[in-house]
Nucleic acid binder design. Structure first.
Lengths: 123, 123
DNA sequence: GCCTTAGGTTTCTTTTTGTATACTACGTTT
DNA sequence: AAACGTAGTATACAAAAAGAAACCTAAGGC
C-alpha cells in the first residue's frame, strides 16, 4: 500500500526557490558563513536565506556552527547525513540536463521551460 | 562550469502540490480518464488537475488522448519518454522513506515533517 | 425545451511565498 | 562618542500559487 508513495517527503526538502542553489553552494564550497552565502547568492534576502537554512538544518542536511563572538560568526556545512543526498541530487541534475535537451528537440532551441499560461499570449 | 547546476529543471516538473500524486496514479494505474483521476484524488479541483496535467503534457511526460464524443472523453497516460522518469522517482521515493525513518530517530515518532515556524508555539 | 454528462474555463477569494526596509546586540575601530 | 560589522528578527507589503464555485459546450434522453 505504501510503496512508491513518499517521494513527496523528499521533494519537500528540495523545493522552494532557494534550497537547490543553497545546497549547490554548500556542496561545492564546503563550509560557508552566512555572509559568504549572501555574497554567493546576491538575489536572496536575509529572511529567505535564514528560513531555508533553518529548514535544511531541521532535516539534518546542513549543520549550523555558532561561534560566540562579536561580531557574530556562523558557519554552515553539509552534514554527514546530508552528504548522502549527493547521488540523488546528481541523478536529478543529470535528468534535468537531458530533459532540456529533450525539450529542445520537441520545441526547438528557443523555447521557454514553462508552458505558456493562458495569459500574455500575444494579447 | 555547468555540471551539477540544473536539477532545478528537474524539480520544476515534480513540484507543485499535485504533480507527484498525479504521476503516482498514472504510473500505477496506466491509462486514466480525467474523471477517474478526479475520483482517485478527491481533494484536487478541476482547475488544478487540468493545469498540472497540461504542464506534464508540455514536458512530454503524459499523453492526452481526446475522443471526439459527446459527452467528451479524454484519457491520460505516461508517455514512453515519461517512463524514463520511473527510476528517479523510485530513487526519490526510497530516499523519502529512509528520511522519514531518519527524522523519527532524531525527533521521535510523533514529529511533524515541517519544522515549526515561529507562530503557533503552544500559545 | 429542459436535464444530464464529461471535461473543461472563468472569475473571485484566500493562502502561501517572497521582497524591502528597519532594527538589535555588542565589541572594535575611527 | 559615533560608526562599523555580523547574523540575524520584525514588520509591512507585493506577488504568486492554490482553492471554491459558477459557468460553458454539445448531443442524447425524457
Amino acid at each position: 500500500m505504501s510503496t512508491f508513495c513518499k517521494f513527496e517527503t523528499a521533494l519537500e526538502i528540495l523545493v522552494g526557490k532557494w534550497k537547490p542553489v543553497i545546497l549547490l553552494r554548500l556542496f561545492s564550497n564546503g563550509t560557508m558563513r552566512f555572509s559568504e552565502l549572501q555574497k554567493a547568492i546576491p538575489e536572496i534576502t536575509k529572511k529567505m536565506l535564514t528560513q531555508q537554512l533553518r529548514e535544511l538544518e531541521y532535516h539534518d542536511i546542513v549543520h549550523r556552527e555558532i561561534y560566540r563572538q562579536i561580531p557574530p560568526k556562523v558557519e554552515y556545512s553539509i552534514t554527514e547525513y546530508g552528504k548522502g543526498m549527493e547521488p540523488i541530487l546528481q541523478a536529478l541534475n543529470d535528468w534535468g540536463v537531458a530533459h532540456i535537451e529533450h525539450l529542445n528537440e520537441l520545441y526547438g532551441p528557443n523555447h521557454s521551460v514553462e508552458p505558456h499560461t493562458n495569459d500574455a499570449m500575444d494579447e
